[in-house]
Design a protein around this nucleic acid. Structure first.
Length: 510
RNA sequence: GACCUCGUAGCUCAGUCGGUAGAGCACUUGACUUUUAAUCAAGUGGCCGCAGGUUCGAAUCCUGCCGGGGUCACCA
């Protein structure tokens, strides 16, 4: 061996060849595990080491401390890290093979559990085998535990771009982020159980849609070759789920990926997950109660308490949540009663609040703007905002007592919306008029306004029972429950701009 | 889309007034049979995001581009 620089990948390839020449398969087919690392760490009893006299465990090598004829290393499995101890006297020739292993390799070992002089529960290895050889170095950080027992990570892999683009590496070297995704799965499972236990049906509806609807948003457009038609990636599943209520199901829900061709930031990814549920013979009052029960249940299941901490905010999901009428909130946070004001009166009210408006803005748009500027970010504790202006909600049913309003609520927590619900509009005459109004707005240049879906109207004409519908933004709910402030940290693979193609490749194509 | 900001070794970062690049860790070689940020000794490693410009000379100054992060706009 020379002391010259050898490319780490080439060196690892050489190691593989060396192993193969010794008859060792660097990529064998299976390994019999008896334990996870956490099972050992949590249950090892110094008084009864015989309980762990023979364990077999597998994982990725995360560190090495080689000391001549003895070696310590840590391996990482799905439940965490555990230390291994290898002794030349014990494993003989295998000890030489150990020198051909690197950080990143996956190995399986058998041995007995003991506690080292320094007090760490470890596995005294009796036999070992390579399960997968890694060819590329990992950006592993060194970890230290201080006197208070706090973990200090030195030079951690923190570059957000690399972490998002190479999530598999991030999950290895910053393995604590797994917890976020485990919580995410648990949130969805809890939600599913909550609905299933009430007898509602989980369904699937088209992602590729010839006519998109159910929300105001710009869609992604695709094209079907055989039919030679444009197809749109769904922006919401509302209209299809309502068709199923028309068809006679009394409770349907879907956990769906939706796609919106809009800007990206820390709360928006082009594809995102939402849950929509529709229950027949119910209204939004009933759904409000169900929603707070659901959110409360999710929080206690996932966090073991009704409270979460996000930044400086401590948020309690204790029941019941606050309920506030939309126009009362305007009064509370702006000091002005905006109810029943004309478009121009709203514009001048906005001006007094220091909010810029222009002539193209509708009354609805101005109200929305004021809400966004003055109210929304102040709704930290869970708050149901109730009863919205009709213009803002073309799929919601007119309020039973209040003119100009619809029966709708949105749930705000920590200054952002996480759920939206209406008493669903089931009067086909009213629905047609509202969609036609949307089409007019669209014709005037608002490409986010809805399009008329004749088949959906036909379904309503067949007849839909009174129905309550709810949508929950799953990504934002996960952010809330995990204390993450960027949607990219609750998605395994957030959308990223592709990296630049290399100059040479560009020239070939150009 | 606009603005601000960042991009230097595999990772985390220094790099002064413009004088052709440095640390720690990782990696390689050697020593070391209970270590733990193991230690000790010696070494390898860079198109300073890319392309131009200014200059005798550019990681450093200027312009454009690429990518990230942030703020705003749009939105859930």
């Amino acid at each position: 061996m020379t002391e010259q620089h050898i490319d780490p990948e080439l060196r690892r390839l050489e190691e593989i060849e060396l192993l193969e020449s010794k008859g060792i398969n660097p990529y064998p087919y299976s390994f019999e595990k008896t334990h996870n690392s956490s099972e050992i760490l949590n249950n090892f009893d110094d008084e009864n080491p015989a309980n762990f006299a023979s364990v077999s465990i597998a994982g990725r090598i995360m560190s090495f401390r080689r000391m001549g004829k003895a070696t310590f290393c840590h391996i990482l499995d799905q439940t965490g890290k555990i230390q291994l101890y290898f002794k030349k006297d014990e494993i003989g020739d295998d000890y030489d093979n150990l020198k051909l292993y690197d950080i990143g390799d996956i190995i399986g070992v058998k041995g007995y559990v003991f506690r080292t002089k320094m007090g760490e529960i470890s596995i005294h290895v009796q036999t070992q085998e390579l399960l997968s050889k890694s060819l590329k170095p990992l950006p592993v950080a060194k970890e230290e535990v201080d006197e208070a027992g706090n973990k200090i990570v030195h030079d951690a892999f923190t570059d957000k771009e690399s972490r998002y683009r190479k999530r598999y590496i991030d999950l290895i070297v910053n393995s604590e982020i797994r917890d976020t995704f485990i919580k995410r799965a648990k949130i969805i499972t809890t939600m599913r159980n909550f609905f299933d236990s009430r007898g509602w049906l989980e369904v699937e509806t088209p992602i590729l849609q010839p006519i998109y609807g159910g929300a105001t948003a710009r869609p992604f457009v695709s094209h079907h070759n055989a039919l030679d038609i444009p197809l749109y990636l769904r922006i919401a599943d509302e209209l299809y789920l309502k068709r199923l209520i028309v068809g006679g199901f009394e409770g349907v829900y879907e956990i769906s990926k939706n796609f919106r061709n809009e800007g990206m930031d820390k709360t928006h990814n082009p594809e995102f997950t939402s849950m929509e549920i529709y229950v027949a013979y119910k209204d939004y009052e009933w759904m409000m109660q169900l929603t707070e029960e659901l959110i409360n249940k999710i929080c206690t299941e996932v966090n073991g308490s009704e409270k979460v901490t996000i930044g400086d905010s401590n948020i309690s999901f204790a029941l019941p949540f606050r309920r506030a009428k939309m126009f009362d909130l305007y009064k509370e946070y702006t000091g002005k009663d905006l109810k029943g004001l004309s478009r121009d009166e709203l514009a001048s009210a906005a001006k007094e609040m220091g909010i810029e408006t222009d002539k193209t803005m509708s009354a609805m748009k101005i109200l929305d703007l004021i809400f966004g500027e003055k109210v929304e970010h102040r709704l930290i504790e869970p708050t149901f905002v109730v009863d919205y202006p009709i213009e803002m909600s073309p799929l919601a049913k007119k309020h039973r007592t209040e003119d100009g309003l619809v029966e709708r609520f949105e749930l705000f927590v920590n200054g952002s919306e996480i759920a939206n619900c209406f008493s669903e509009l089931n009067d086909p005459r009213d629905q047609r008029a509202r969609l036609e109004e949307q089409a007019r707005i669209r014709a005037d240049g608002d490409d986010e306004a809805m399009v008329v879906d004749e088949d959906f109207l036909n379904a309503l004409e067949i007849g839909m029972p009174p129905t309550a519908g709810l949508g929950v933004g799953i990504d934002r709910l996960v952010m809330l429950m995990t204390g993450e402030t960027s949607i990219r940290d609750v998605l395994f693979f957030p959308q990223m701009r592709p990296e630049k193609v290399k100059k040479a490749e560009q020239n070939e194509n150009g």
